[in-house]
Amino acid sequence: MPKVTRYDAPRVIDSGSIWILVAAPTIWAVHFLLSYWVAAVYCAKSGSGWLGGLTDPRWIIVGLGGLSIAAIVWLGMIAVRRYGGVFVVLEEITDSSEQGRERFIGHVALLLCALSAVAIVFTVIPGLVFDRC
């Protein structure tokens, strides 16, 4: 009878690294929906005084943008430190090892951080241009 070998259960969230892939775009999505919601509620409800007392929506949107980008920078640092993510352009990460897989995920996560940050800046621009509904 050959040697019996069993394996650990899959690790997904804790020691795994899938979450970092979707974290940055998720921050973009949350920021996007919040901006939309702030503008929509502000425009719909400002007359009834519900949010009318609050400040200009443009500064809320800019503030949200700043917070989101800070969060993304933090995520980018995790991607670099924990996963060894690098901004490589000139090589492919094809090592068949756990470390290779982690570096790959860290690398893609870093790229997604950059893309999400650009998308957030794009979302902030309308907030700066429009001061009314």
Binding site: Y36, C43, L115, P126, F130
Partner: peptide, 19 residues
């Protein structure tokens, strides 16, 4: 819809061209 709402979606629609 309010122009500012439209503009968020305009921004995202432009951004998607990058990836």
């Amino acid at each position: 819809l309010p122009e500012i709402s439209l503009s968020f979606f305009s921004a995202a629609s432009e951004a998607v061209a990058v990836p």
